[in-house]
Design a protein around this nucleic acid. Sequence first.
DNA 1: TCCTAAGCGAGACGGTACGTCGTGTCTTCGG
DNA 2: CCGAAGACACGACGTACCGTCTCGCTTAGGA
Lengths: 210, 210, 210, 210
Amino acid sequence: VIWITRGAGYGPWVARTGRPRSARADAAILDAARAALAELGWGGLSMADVAGRAGVAKTTLYRRWANKNELAVDVLAALFDELRLPDHGSLAADVEDVVLQFATLLERPETKTALMAVVAESTHDDRLRRRVRTAIVDRQKRLVVLGRHRAQNRGELPPDGAGAPGQVDLVFDVIAGAVIHRILVSGEPVDAPWASALSALLLGGLTALR
Amino acid sequence: VIWITRGAGYGPWVARTGRPRSARADAAILDAARAALAELGWGGLSMADVAGRAGVAKTTLYRRWANKNELAVDVLAALFDELRLPDHGSLAADVEDVVLQFATLLERPETKTALMAVVAESTHDDRLRRRVRTAIVDRQKRLVVLGRHRAQNRGELPPDGAGAPGQVDLVFDVIAGAVIHRILVSGEPVDAPWASALSALLLGGLTALR
Amino acid sequence: VIWITRGAGYGPWVARTGRPRSARADAAILDAARAALAELGWGGLSMADVAGRAGVAKTTLYRRWANKNELAVDVLAALFDELRLPDHGSLAADVEDVVLQFATLLERPETKTALMAVVAESTHDDRLRRRVRTAIVDRQKRLVVLGRHRAQNRGELPPDGAGAPGQVDLVFDVIAGAVIHRILVSGEPVDAPWASALSALLLGGLTALR
Amino acid sequence: VIWITRGAGYGPWVARTGRPRSARADAAILDAARAALAELGWGGLSMADVAGRAGVAKTTLYRRWANKNELAVDVLAALFDELRLPDHGSLAADVEDVVLQFATLLERPETKTALMAVVAESTHDDRLRRRVRTAIVDRQKRLVVLGRHRAQNRGELPPDGAGAPGQVDLVFDVIAGAVIHRILVSGEPVDAPWASALSALLLGGLTALR
DNA sequence: TCCTAAGCGAGACGGTACGTCGTGTCTTCGG
DNA sequence: CCGAAGACACGACGTACCGTCTCGCTTAGGA
């Protein structure tokens, strides 16, 4: 039998002998880490506690993740992967929907405490920064790209011009940044009116940019 | 003789006896903490180290701040207070200027490492959240209010209508959030073209909102 | 106005100006220290706590005693000064009486905890050792000297010979040492039978020494 | 595989999993603590310093001993275990020998500073008092019991009568107490003449007791 | 069927920071 | 000069968590 080194698919397939890693342990650890984050916050999160909750030895955690930052990134990545972009027939409605979804995600205690903490740690840890980028940032840009594509098909937006990639980034930073800032920094709720105002501001601005 | 309670002016005047707190220590600690953050990052920041750099006993730190989170908020607040809103004669230019200033502030290692960390901790600490809000968020909204006021005087914006306060908050969250997200999460630089694009998007959107 | 430097009467009379020391404070401090020792033991004794109990500032303590060891010696000396040697008409009875008195003194929590602690500290502090010696040891040898004098007058003991001073010391070390060791080290009570056995052993031994 | 609980054999055999305690660490810590006591005295003894000298983490100390008092008892117990009772052919000579041995032990700086300190602390700490008793007091009574046994075999003492155990205790308290008091409290040296006088006093007294 | 190499639990280990406490000194004021 | 109040420098305390290690036991593939 052949299995692969752990991780998000980095590296080639490697033949291994010996007892294979327990898939149940993987899931149990991620679940336990999410629960611990929700209950205790980043500062209260400890590897020993996660191991205890997962019914697993600390060794088993460290065999899979180098440290608690990397574990947290994987927890976050799984949470972010729950975001979806449903087609409501108009760009404005799609944006509002995803804004509210993102807000719901950020209101969850595990997300709000872990996201900022991981970003903070990543400012002094290149390996972590790359991991955040590939596992979360670049991965979620798919939502902007998809929304833009649909809007172009509907004729709401012109086809890609020269500044296309930069515009995707700008839109992504504005949407994600505004939501994060409102919820985590300002500490205000994101509700439908606010989502609609942000959407209107953004789409109005995009039109004006041309 | 009457002393006042230390801190950023919270609470009423209180009569005090005994040796007064050393104002030199206050300044030395904040300076030392800023330097330590810049050098070592959030994870490397330790109260003992800060005390050592400041030439002060650990006790003296804990007499003023309950823990390193609260100390960090005050360090950040002082850094944010360096932001200025110069009058360039047009709203667009003013926005671009403050965006670049904010970016410069966020590129400083002490700011980038501490801001996210403090926000992360504040999600599980109400006292800290309030402190972030009063010492940083509410305090910096002055920039948006002032910019808006100037623009109204110039005739670039209409006088305050019904949604004025909400619009201030929205603009603040969009500007601050976008800059923070681009620099800290996406890990991309904020340069003049990007600042100008953000400014254009925002002002275009504001016009469209009416 | 003329008063004297504090302490157990060491040094000459010295003229002083300014506000005189408060005699009430002296007594209050010694009382408070005794009470604190009884309640908290040596390890729990703190100068700040004593000051609080005495309703006095820490400054006031340190103006009188250089540190808590010296304060404790004075507390102990006052306790030991309560010992008396009543005349029961026979040396055996006198010894038994003083043994039981000493035991009662040592059963008091303030004595038992402070005596050993001060002796322990004195092993690394010459000034303290001298103070223990003059204020406690040499002072209480009076009991042995007096008892011996009375016994000689009764004809129970021969007049002083060559080894007299050494014998006083030996008897003192045996009585005090045995009682201290039984109560504090062995942790056994000193009752009348034991006191009588010790007295018999001692007097029998003294007779045999000749 | 089965490990036993660490410690001086208290408690039953217990099955253990996980990495076993390091026996080298045990020895290194006790050695380091003895050295630190000798150099710095009780007041200067700190757990961190001991850990440093032993090349061991502080955690490793606290895993074995609850605090520095309990560590000190074990250091003392090991020191006291060096006492031997050689057979000189007469009770008087045996007593003198052990008195001088005990005096030598008490002159060692580590013993003199720690013994009294531990006894002082034990007056407010039952657990510590029990530990002192089992590890030191009861353990060293073996010397008295052995000496008595030999003397009985030689015909110097009658066989055990009714008051035997009490007499062992009395003799133990007198010898140990007198030596401790002379050295630590009175601050006088224990030399051969003094040892011989004490021995004579004691044996004369024992004879007279019958 | 056994061999063997890795996984696994348990928990000890060397480190490091935490936040608290006590010491003895100092710096204010007012008596 | 005394006294109160309390800040100060210093340094130890005992706890908690990190990430590594060392045990014996388990598991599953390949020989």
